[in-house]
């Protein structure tokens, strides 16, 4: 099996390297990309879209289709993880551990046993429990708001600096995952429940595709944001800049929700009960 894998990998690699022979020379000024595309983007992006960061303009405007289906792929990955891993049967772990917050005493309750009435003073801990660490908990609690603020900055400032929907969405999702790692999975699910993930993940894709369809309804091409000028009450060039911001928000929402969704499914093995 290993040898077959090696042969396949070497063959694919050889084919790919053979394919690069047909590429234009390294930094060839006469190549099609350097004669038509790059000069147009470099010279015209500012006057056509009023977005200083050319990469953002190319990703969300000129190559809007590409990014839309990338977002769809991410959404599909989340749905696939859900269908593969989620166990919907209501069946808890065979035993649960409860720990007294002040004394550190831990009690174990097997499935089917009667729950003692004093359980309110105890907090539930995972059976594969990593010891409670006050430093990690406190530092993460202090850091998470700043991480989320930075993520919002990355999304909103994608026009002017590196960043945008994908990166901001990943950082937003990572902040909730950090909460799940530093506290426990149940705390994170209390903040972002499965239902919220499952609604936000397609909602992001819908914002993106819906913006495109709205442009179509207003008489432009699909994802031609200058058609939005009439409802945003700005000139067509600024409308393209605002349209990019709208789809970036859609991408950010979809990526954030999908990331948390995948993490919840993988780390709890589909049970949403105990996790990493």
């Amino acid at each position: 099996m290993k040898i077959i894998g090696l042969i396949i990998a070497v063959l694919t690699g050889a084919l790919l390297i053979y394919g690069t022979v047909d590429f234009p020379e390294w930094a060839d000024p006469a190549s099609p990309a350097s004669t038509h595309l790059s000069p147009h983007f470099i010279e015209k992006t500012m006057e056509e879209t009023s977005v200083p960061n050319i990469v953002t303009a190319v990703l969300a405007d000129y190559r809007g289709y590409d990014t839309m289906f990338e977002t769809t792929v991410i959404f599909a990955a989340g749905v696939v993880c859900f269908f593969l891993l989620r166990i919907l049967k209501k069946e808890g772990p065979r035993q649960r551990l409860y720990r007294h917050a002040l004394t550190g005493m831990t009690i174990r309750i097997r499935d089917g046993e009667k729950r003692p009435s004093v359980l309110d003073e105890f907090e539930r801990i995972d059976t594969m429990w990593t010891p409670y660490d006050v430093i990690i908990k406190t530092v993460c609690r202090l850091l998470i708001p700043f991480i989320q603020l930075f993520a919002l900055y990355v999304i909103a400032h994608g026009h002017h600096s590196p960043g945008g929907g994908f990166q901001g969405g990943v950082i937003l999702g990572a902040s909730i995952i950090l909460l799940a790692i530093s506290q426990d999975l149940r705390t994170a699910i209390k903040r972002m429940s499965e239902k919220v993930d499952a609604i936000l993940s397609p909602a992001g894709v819908f914002i993106y595709a819906g913006t495109g369809a709205l442009c179509l309804l207003l008489g432009g091409n699909f994802l031609d944001y200058s058609a939005l000028a009439s409802i945003l009450h700005v000139d067509p060039v600024t409308a393209r800049s605002h349209g990019i911001l709208i789809v970036e928000i859609g991408v950010g929402v979809a990526v954030m929700a999908t990331l948390i969704w995948i993490y919840n499914n993988v780390s709890s093995a589909g049970k949403y009960d105990e996790g990493l």
């Binding site: 945008g164 990166q167 990572a174 990331l259 780390s267 990493l276």
Partner: peptide
């Protein structure tokens, strides 16, 4: 390629490592 590097840092070094660790844990 600062945008690509930003994506690589957040997705590659951040999120996917967490996914791998979660999968190994399970």
């Amino acid at each position: 390629a600062v945008d690509v590097s930003f994506t690589e840092a957040s997705v590659g070094a951040g999120a996917s490592t967490v996914f791998f660790v979660a999968a190994v844990f399970r």
